[in-house]
């Protein structure tokens, strides 16, 4: 089986027609389903948060069979993910896509558990600390995309679980968790 680093590629990745958008509905649905699973799976194991449609991305081409996805196909697969809430376009032109291998709601739950585990209730931290502080090392929060993290934090703020405020440095926000 072909691998990308430590990632095992599914058999369909070696079957050329899966790199061309299929015109027949049933066949295309199956094709899109397989690609959606592959993209989510790959991003999750490799901790990838953003896919640029015009950039190099290992899943978008398979040198072994000399096939690569057209722009149209890339957009179709990602659009399918967006429609399921598993991705979001970052721009109107659909050039960059945020991949939510955890949904925002799930990220929010992960943050709450993190707060509970480290007894951070009623204490103050910063967004950067959550992403790169020693506490989050080894958890899914380590290195999490800033946009996703902010989205999840805003969701929690909305629910009254925390307050976000401007910190001393311009590019970092402070967080105060409620109990």
């Amino acid at each position: 089986m072909q691998t990308l680093g430590n990632f095992k590629l599914p058999p369909f990745f070696n079957y050329p027609p899966y790199f061309t958008l299929q015109p027949v509905r049933d066949t295309r649905e199956k094709q899109v389903q397989l690609w959606k699973e592959l993209i989510l799976d790959y991003c999750k194991t490799q901790k990838i948060f953003v896919i640029g449609l015009e950039e190099e991305f290992p899943l978008f081409s398979n040198p072994a069979i000399e096939r690569s996805l057209t722009h149209e196909a890339r957009e179709a697969f990602l659009t399918a993910l967006v429609s399921e809430g598993r991705a979001e376009w970052l721009d109107k032109g659909h050039r960059k896509c945020l991949i939510l291998w955890h949904r925002i709601q799930d990220w929010a739950d992960i943050i709450l558990n993190f707060v509970k585990d480290y007894g951070l209730e009623n204490s103050v931290t910063t967004v950067e600390e959550i992403r790169s502080g020693p506490e989050s090392r080894g958890t899914d929060l380590q290195g999490v995309d800033r946009i996703i993290l902010m989205r999840a934090l805003k969701l929690l703020e909305h629910k009254g679980k925390l307050a976000i405020f401007k910190g001393t440095s311009a590019d970092d926000e402070g967080i105060k968790f409620s109990s």
Binding site: T20, P23, V24, D26, R67
Partner: peptide, 13 residues
């Protein structure tokens, strides 16, 4: 193709 027995591949050079 319509019956789902075939798949198209436009990717060859």
């Amino acid at each position: 193709l319509k019956e789902g027995f075939a798949m198209i591949d436009d990717g060859h050079r």
